[in-house]
């Protein structure tokens, strides 16, 4: 008889704690990201799509509670923005969730969610990759252009946000609604969409975007997890072991931010997103055409990518700690060192 903890074999406990550790390291370092690998990982491992999405949301909620505790001293929150976003995202999450359960009834949920995931991860990955290549040369002219254009649309009611930003409340609501739908549909916290949307789309200052983002994700993650849990679609033991690893990883990642510049690792991060989209795609193809090697490939891709990027963060941090820029491993991760 194999030993089990909370109904999971010791091996699975190790996998979830280990995967949580990797994801937490990424979250602690980049302040976002990584958690949206949970739902694809659970899909790849054969969990039903509702459970993969519901557990992903519960994990996002737990992670953001930890993030909120960490930022509580210097978090700047724009409550007006938070309220509009929360209401819009709550409506959006409900809508997104209804779509998932409807698709599940028609038997198409796995296919549609997988395809949407591939598209989303690939898009965000390509943008991040472009961002990491053009970071030094251009100072975000196009980003400010977009925010200026959005702010110039006078669709009532107009709201004034902290930092003197004046923007259409209707547009804020619409942005929140779309992110909410994606969040409820894919089980992602929306953080990696919300923060760029607030900063680049609405022109909110970074410090306020981060604080508002964490508050927002905590609330919408709780709500999302609650609605999925009502249908019994949250695998609590899975979430518990993921959190056990990620909370420790978040400490490691946060420690690394004092030593390593985020831009040095950004390329790896983009690669991880692209690998994630490849993983979901090859898993789907493998299942449809019954090719076992594609399923193995997707598992290797998703766990390998998380391992590679969090490994790069840790190696870069250790290299800085030792002031070593010549070792083989150190040269790989600290290429842009000053």
């Amino acid at each position: 008889m194999t030993m089990e903890i909370l109904g999971l074999s010791l091996l699975m406990v190790g996998v979830f704690v280990g995967f949580g550790l990797l994801i937490g390291t990424l979250f602690g370092f980049f302040g976002m990201g990584g958690s949206f690998l949970v739902t694809p990982a659970l899909l790849v491992m054969g969990y039903p799509s509702t459970v993969a999405v519901g557990s992903g949301l519960a994990f996002v909620f737990g992670t953001s509670v930890i993030g909120a505790l960490r930022h509580r001293d210097h978090g700047q929150v724009d409550y007006k923005l938070a309220v509009i976003m929360t209401v819009a995202m709550t409506v959006g999450i409900e809508a997104g969730k209804s779509v998932v359960f409807f698709l599940e009834a028609t038997g198409m949920a796995d296919l549609v969610i997988n395809v949407a995931y591939v598209g989303l991860l690939a898009t965000v990955g390509l943008f991040t990759l472009r961002d990491s290549w053009t970071d030094s040369s251009n100072d975000g002219d196009t980003d400010t252009d977009l925010a200026d254009r959005v702010q110039s649309i006078h669709l009532p009611p107009m709201v004034t946000l902290r930092g003197g930003v004046r923007v259409s409340g209707t547009i804020v609501f619409a942005v929140g609604l779309v992110i909410g739908i994606l969040s409820g549909f894919l089980g992602v916290g929306g953080g990696f969409l919300l923060m760029p949307a607030m900063m680049y789309g609405l022109g909110v200052p970074a410090a306020i975007a981060v604080g508002t983002d964490i508050l927002q994700i905590t609330i919408s993650g709780a709500f999302g997890a609650f609605t999925y849990a009502q249908s019994g679609a949250v695998a609590l033991p899975v979430v518990a072991f993921l959190l056990l690893g990620s909370a420790l990883g978040a400490r490691i990642g946060a420690g690394a931010t004092n030593l390593v510049d985020e831009d040095e690792i950004k390329g790896y991060f983009a690669a991880m997103l692209l690998a994630g989209s490849l993983a979901v795609a090859s898993n789907k193809l493998g299942t449809v055409y019954d090719i076992a090697v594609l399923n193995t490939l997707s598992t290797v891709l998703i766990f390998g990518a998380a391992l590679l990027v969090s490994g790069a963060v840790v190696v870069a941090a250790v290299c800085r700690l030792r002031s070593d820029q010549t070792g083989r491993w150190c040269r790989l991760t600290t290429s842009q060192s000053d």
Binding site: A58, V65, I66, L69, A222, A229, L236
Partner: peptide, 13 residues
Amino acid sequence: TVGIVFLQAIALY
């Protein structure tokens, strides 16, 4: 369920 996740997060922090 949400409460358990919340308490676990605080305990882990």
